[in-house]
Simulated assay, not measured.
Amino acid sequence: MSVVRTEADYAPGAHNTPAKILLVDDRPENLLATEALLRPLGARIITAESGEAALGHVLEHTFAIVLLDVQMPGMDGFETAQLMQTRPSMQGVPIVFVTAISKEDHFASRAAGLGAADYIFKPINPDILKSKVKVYLDLYRQREQILSLNGTLRQSNEELERFAYVCSHDMQEPVRMMNTYAGFLAEDAAGKLEEGTLQYVRYIRENAVRMQKMIRDILTFSRVGREELHLETVDSQKVLDEVLHEVRDIIEAKGAIVTSGALPMIEASPTLLRVVLQNLVGNALKFHDGSRTPEINVSARRAGSRGEPMWRFDVKDNGIGIDPAFSERIFTMFQRLHRSEDYPGTGIGLATCRKFIRLCGGDIVFSSTPGVGTTFTFTLPDKGRPQ
């Protein structure tokens, strides 16, 4: 026989979905006494007078803790615990064995082998039992709160990314038209307006172009993780060459020296690699004070031999450098270290890089000395290397 107590969770202020305790003992008087002892803890208490009845409850409920008598007719506590643990819902649930007879060491060893959280001898000290159960209940509730908060945070992030995608997508056309008509105005007004007034028109166009870039960057960021990531064999040297070709005018204007080792063939997303290299090379070219010739080196090597094999890419420059105190800030959206008048940008590029790389199982960090230069290091799993 088994009993399910359904009072209003036994305590004021209990959660809408209270934690559940399973008591298993073949003696009804023991169940009643233990239930009365634990009732003030605010948990829902379910009782069973046999191992078979306990297994039935495990199929229907998720428990925070199980108090299980060892000596029972038919299926004993050890057999019951072993069968309980075959259920996915029981993985990690603490089982406390309670016994009046089995005090020998080998019984305790057997309980430990089954993953028992504790092994208590009768007669039970009420204060000790209540204290131990309270600890397990608190841990269970904290874990449930964390899972709930994680779920809420994940949903909020998804909603925010959807909002960013929709807004930025819908903003593209009006900003494009703003830029276009400002251009028409500048052409039509040439020679008719004072220079100061024409400068205002140029300000409109410059900011429209800046907003267009920001919208594109937000769209790129919001797509990361929303669309399926397709991995293929990518020639990383070819991707770098294409990126350098796109910025060749900037390289020539600055007289920059860009070198690279023989970059490898890797299993990756070509889009991912292009976005990462565009941002890192672009930043290396941008963040220079003009006091010396910009130098950029891109290299790659295998790493992570003791764990998961990885490719390590380094993008090194001799620019203005970054204060290590800003190690997290630079990877946060819209967080900038410099005025846009000095170094234009949207503050989204590095956040996109990290999101992309982590989605693929890698990471990105940097080392820097202000006034000397910076090295950005990112890793990607080496899919072609034997584990």
Rank of each mutant, 00 (worst) to 15 (best):
Q91D: 11
V247W: 02
V239R: 07
E79L: 05
L59Y: 08
L23W: 02
T352G: 13
D314H: 01
I357K: 05
A19D: 11
L55G: 07
R223W: 10
L23C: 12
R141T: 14
A112W: 13
S131G: 13
K103P: 02
Q145P: 01
R205H: 09
A19W: 06
D317T: 06
G115F: 07
G349H: 05
S269G: 08
I65L: 14
E161P: 07
L193C: 01
I128M: 08
V98G: 01
Q387G: 10
P18R: 01
A351N: 02
M75G: 10
P28V: 09
R44G: 09
V98L: 15
A64Q: 00
D9I: 07
Q387T: 14
G115T: 07
L31M: 07
S89A: 14
L59H: 10
R205V: 10
N283T: 12
H245W: 08
S168P: 01
V239C: 05
F163D: 13
L59R: 11
I330F: 03
T99F: 07
V135T: 05
N318S: 01
F313T: 03
P309D: 06
A268P: 05
D25R: 00
Y343N: 09
T375N: 07
R354E: 11
S340F: 03
K355S: 10
G151A: 15
T47Y: 04
A19K: 08
R216D: 13
A48D: 08
I250R: 10
E242A: 08
H169L: 12
G56Q: 12
N283Y: 04
R154G: 13
H245S: 15
P28Q: 03
V234C: 03
Q335Y: 13
L231T: 12
L114T: 13
P28L: 07
I21Y: 04
A81E: 11
C353H: 05
G347K: 05
R223H: 03
S222K: 06
Y10H: 15
T180M: 12
K103E: 15
L149S: 03
A116R: 14
L32I: 13
F221V: 10
S269F: 00
F97G: 07
F97T: 06
G92A: 02
E252I: 13
K238M: 11
A256K: 08
P73A: 09
T346P: 08
Q85V: 06
E52L: 05
R292S: 09
E159P: 08
L139M: 15
M90S: 00
R27Y: 09
T352L: 12
S299F: 02
G255E: 07
V96Q: 00
G307T: 02
A325Y: 14
F184L: 14
A116H: 03
H288R: 14
K238Q: 15
L137G: 04
G345R: 03
Q142C: 06
G347Q: 04
I45G: 00
W311N: 02
V93G: 00
A268V: 04
I45P: 08
G384T: 09
G319C: 10
S367R: 06
S148M: 12
A36I: 09
G261H: 04
V4L: 05
S291R: 09
L272C: 11
R162S: 11
Q199N: 06
C353I: 07
F121D: 09
E341L: 09
V275L: 11
A351D: 09
L153Y: 00
P12F: 12
D69M: 15
T80K: 01
R44F: 00
